[in-house]
Design a protein around this nucleic acid. Structure first.
Lengths: 239, 239
DNA sequence: AACTGACCAATAGGAACGTTTTGGTCAGTT
DNA sequence: AACTGACCAAAACGTTCCTATTGGTCAGTT
């Protein structure tokens, strides 16, 4: 049974969509349950049929955004196992990270509040694990084992370099005004950089790609399952 | 004549040193002129002999930190022109950036206040120019012109990649807990990455290195002069 | 000339109070 | 069973007032 209450209840779906729009418009700190209910066209009590508290609703909303990112990654890996190549995976992570619009648009104050809400719901580590750099760090050993990384450098150094590149390119993509304007696409520049730095001279064969993609997708799916569990815990049981 | 009032007055030097220690201990928002004067062993009026206001004193303090960084860069380039090689310059910028202890240790609230003080003294752009990534971006054309960058990629893309790498590696160095633990030194990993990505296969000759180092040092010196001018403007004229 | 610290206007901070708003509940309705 | 919105305790917010603190000045001192 799906943990996503909105798959069972149209009103719950409206509540989530209204919450999302209000967060995008006004941030978290000015959000009220009365406004959410009004925008969703339901009574306030209806909101509490599905979420035990306003805080749970907010955490659940952001968790769904993380879920979307993870599912997009898995879908891409399933559709095209070559996406597991570091020079494909890095830009994939940056571009899916770029689409976390809710989290990306928060002001500093709202971000602080969200962090507190997440911490209080015991999900700080899980949200950290969903970050592009953390996801990549988690799967570097898999890439190494399948020969997708050159083996003339310590894996720890390669992981460090990959983390720094994802962070640096990710920031540059999210704040283009702070970075020089490239001639090409940022993701293409990142792909080129990762290929040069981390990939072996000899391309791995399709079997290695497929095996690596399967393992990486499995790891991402485990994180996805944990996010689904969190979402389940933010909802009223039995709703 | 030196713009640095502390070169002419021992009491001014003590005021600066005391201010620095108090900022490191308590941040900016809790800083008082009475405390600074007491720690420096002077009267409050003495502080106002050298700086027109508390705000000027603070901006002057941070400007001196920027000055230290710029002078360290120029000294390095003068001592060893090979430092101008991208694979040498990038880690040099990261390691000198790491030593901006005053700025690096500010809490978010103090950082916001500093930004306001800097903006009010009309020095926002200058402080931005001192950032490692901005310094490097400014000199990329010089490196390109002297053949220190491979020429099979657009310079704009190389500048973008360099910016992202300095940002990513810089962040990883400043917040090691958020990054995977490398086997080697972060600066060495960055050097290796930059060499592979940006440097030509054929090493440039010493003449090119020397010429490039001279131009880069000149550019850094121009920024240094601007910082000295700012410092002069934060002090009481004739003090 | 260099320096000091008492002085003071301005600002910051905190307490108290009253008003408004909000999260969450639940009796009543459909 | 699903839903609503009046209700209420709690919290948030704004205002007023008072006290304490601070930035900056300058008459007096060395």
């Amino acid at each position: 049974m799906s943990q996503l209450v909105e798959h069972r209840s149209r009103k719950a779906a409206r509540v989530l969509e209204s919450t999302r729009e209000l967060v995008l418009d006004h941030g978290i700190r000015k959000l009220t349950v009365a406004e959410i209910a009004k925008a969703a066209g339901v009574g306030k009590g209806t909101v509490y049929l599905y979420w035990p508290s306003k805080e749970d609703l907010i955490v659940g909303l952001f968790a769904r955004e993380a879920l979307t990112l993870l599912e997009a990654l898995v879908a891409r890996l399933d559709a095209d196992p070559a996406s597991v190549l570091p020079s494909r995976l890095a830009p994939l992570l940056v571009s899916t990270g770029r689409r976390i619009t809710l989290a990306n648009r928060l002001t500093a104050g709202d971000f602080d509040l969200l962090r507190q809400l997440v911490r209080q719901s015991g999900a700080r580590e899980l949200f950290a694990d969903v970050m592009p750099a953390a996801l990549c760090e988690a799967v570097m050993p898999v890439l190494h084992r399948h020969g997708l990384l050159r083996n003339d450098r310590p894996l720890a150094d390669q992981a460090f370099a990959m983390h720094a590149m994802l962070t640096g390119f990710g920031d540059a993509v999210l704040e283009p005004d702070a970075a020089p304007r490239p001639a090409g696409e940022p993701e293409a520049i990142l792909a080129d950089a990762v290929a040069r730095l981390l990939e072996p001279a000899t391309a791995p064969d399709d079997a290695a790609l497929a095996a690596a993609a399967t393992e990486v997708a499995a790891a991402v799916n485990r994180t996805r399952d944990a996010v689904l569990d969190l979402i389940g815990r933010t909802q009223v049981p039995g709703a």
